[in-house]
């Protein structure tokens, strides 16, 4: 479990993380969402004791990171896949990490095989592609078989097969009872991978909930319906208490379930050409929630 309490960090005039508190539970994948520049990476660096908070505290399994006996055996992290010496081979890099934390060096071969890099283990990591670098970073995180895992944007640079592999891996790790904390600015990816969410914008906590609740609490269930005689259907639905919005060739109906709409259409002998439950995507909810919270906002094209 990771507990963050009242975490604050400023760089000069910029407040990167502002009184942030949340906990990350074991056994599930927790997504850490926020636009670019919202403080995700800064928070992750502070969890690993790399940056010092100005205020607040972080504990991993009840202890400060610097106090862990063998940190790599308790917390595995992928922060920046390129944060390694380009002149060293993948195997030597992992061997040095294993030795620093009294991890059996047999694990080096095991994790290289696990991430599919065993054939390039002797190649210099400077020659690795972004995707290979990510795999090596994941191998390093898994080296000490830790109970807590942090991944900062792990699917960056991966091909579709690699993305699927990471998604499955994260869920498998969570199923083993591990604490899995994954940051991303890609909501669609988190919708598929995570069960819990910690959402931040401009360093502040915006939401800490499950993916389901996050969507349900912030969207109104909407049904999209079309018919040959759209005007008659619109009038009938309104009479029965639904709110409708007329679009070019269909209606968006709220405050009425899909089933009820079908029955009304049958009563009125109106043939439906479409009747679909609209589910708001995590993306849309996130965009609404973080509107104006990004560090850089793009304007409309003139």
């Amino acid at each position: 479990m990771i507990s963050v309490t009242g975490l604050t960090k400023t760089y000069g005039e910029t407040v990167a993380v502002d009184d942030l508190s949340f906990t990350v539970q074991p056994g599930v994948v927790t997504g850490f969402l926020g636009p670019n520049g919202s403080g995700k990476s800064t928070t992750m660096r502070m969890i690993l004791g790399l940056d010092r908070p100005d205020d607040g505290s972080i504990t991993v399994d009840g202890k400060a990171y610097r106090e862990l006996a063998w940190p790599l055996r308790e917390v595995g992290a992928l922060l920046d896949a390129k944060a390694l010496h380009p002149g060293r081979s993948a195997r030597s890099h992992l061997k040095s990490l294993a030795e620093s934390n009294a991890i059996d060096t047999k694990r080096v071969g095991e994790v290289l095989e696990l991430v599919g890099l065993d054939s390039v283990a002797k190649r210099k990591v400077g020659k690795f592609s972004l995707g290979m670098g990510q795999r090596l970073g994941i191998a390093a995180a898994l080296l000490g078989d830790p109970q807590i895992l942090l991944f900062d944007e792990p699917v960056n640079g991966l091909d579709p097969e690699g993305i699927l592999w990471v998604r499955t891996l994260l869920q498998d790790l969570a199923k083993q009872g591990k604490t899995v904390f994954v940051s991303s600015h890609l909501m669609s990816e988190m919708a598929l991978t995570a069960s819990n969410l910690v959402v931040i914008g401009r360093g502040k906590l915006l939401a800490e909930t499950t993916v389901e609740n996050f969507i349900a609490s912030r969207t109104t269930p909407t049904v999209r319906v079309s018919a040959r005689n759209l005007d008659a259907l619109d009038a009938a639905l309104r009479r029965k208490g639904a709110s409708t919005t007329r679009e070019s060739d269909h209606l968006l109906v709220t405050e009425m379930a899909q089933e009820a709409i079908g029955e009304i259409a049958l009563d009125q002998a109106i043939a439906l050409t479409e009747l679909t439950q609209q589910s708001a995507s995590l993306e849309e909810v996130f965009m609404q929630l973080t509107a104006g919270e990004g560090e850089y906002e793009s304007g409309a094209v003139q």
Binding site: R45, L50, L79, D80, L84, L97, A140
Partner: peptide
Amino acid sequence: SGAIRTTLAA
């Protein structure tokens, strides 16, 4: 190279 962060995490 940024490797210092990997080193300090270990």
